[in-house]
Deep mutational scan, measured.
Amino acid sequence: HNGKLCKLKGIAPLQLGKCNITGWLLGNPECDSLLPARSWSYIVETPNSENGACYPGDLIDYEELREQLSSVSSLERFEIFPKESSWPNHTFNGVTVSCSHRGKSSFYRNLLWLTKKGDSYPKLTNSYVNNKGKEVLVLWGVHHPSSSDEQQSLYSNGNAYVSVASSNYNRRFTPEIAARPKVRDQHGRMNYYWTLLEPGDTIIFEATGNLIAPWYAFALSRGFESGIITSNASMHECNTKCQTPQGAINSNLPFQNIHPVTIGECPKYVRSTKLRMVTGLRNIPSIQYRGLFGAIAGFIEGGWTGMIDGWYGYHHQNEQGSGYAADQKSTQNAINGITNKVNSVIEKMNTQFTAVGKEFNNLEKRMENLNKKVDDGFLDIWTYNAELLVLLENERTLDFHDLNVKNLYEKVKSQLKNNAKEIGNGCFEFYHKCDNECMESVRNGTYDYPKYSEESKLNREKIDGVKLESMGVYQILAIYSTVASSLVLLVSLGAISFWMCSNGSLQCRICI
Rank of each mutant, 00 (worst) to 15 (best):
T262P: 00
L370K: 12
M439N: 08
V466P: 04
R276W: 11
T446L: 14
K406P: 14
V442N: 05
L506Y: 00
G445V: 06
V473Y: 14
Y312Q: 09
L477S: 00
I308F: 09
L253E: 08
L281E: 02
T279D: 04
V342W: 01
G264P: 04
V466S: 03
A297G: 11
E437M: 10
L392H: 03
V466C: 05
D375E: 14
W499Q: 12
G465V: 05
N283R: 02
I249K: 14
I300Q: 05
A248P: 04
F428L: 15
R460V: 08
T446G: 11
V473L: 15
L253T: 06
V278I: 06
D327H: 11
W382E: 10
K406T: 06
K421P: 04
I249E: 01
N394D: 07
L403H: 14
I476S: 11
C508W: 10
Y447Q: 12
V342G: 01
E437V: 09
S492I: 00
L388F: 14
N318W: 05
G291F: 12
P245Y: 10
G323A: 14
T240R: 05
K241G: 09
R443Y: 06
N419M: 10
V405Q: 15
C266A: 11
S234Y: 01
S486K: 08
I463D: 00
L477C: 14
G465F: 11
N425I: 12
P254K: 06
G280M: 08
K433H: 09
G472H: 12
E265Y: 01
W304M: 14
E319G: 11
Q246E: 06
S414Y: 06
V442A: 06
P254V: 07
Y324C: 07
H315L: 14
N239E: 12
P267Y: 07
Q288Y: 05
E301A: 06
N362Q: 10
H236Y: 11
S481K: 10
F378S: 01
E455F: 12
K365S: 03
L398F: 08
K413S: 08
V466E: 08
P450K: 13
K421S: 00
E359A: 12
S502F: 08
N239S: 13
F400C: 08
S456Y: 03
N250K: 12
C434Q: 07
V488L: 10
N283Y: 06
C438H: 06
D435V: 03
Q352K: 08
P285H: 15
G424R: 09
G321K: 03
I287N: 01
C238V: 06
N257K: 08
G310P: 00
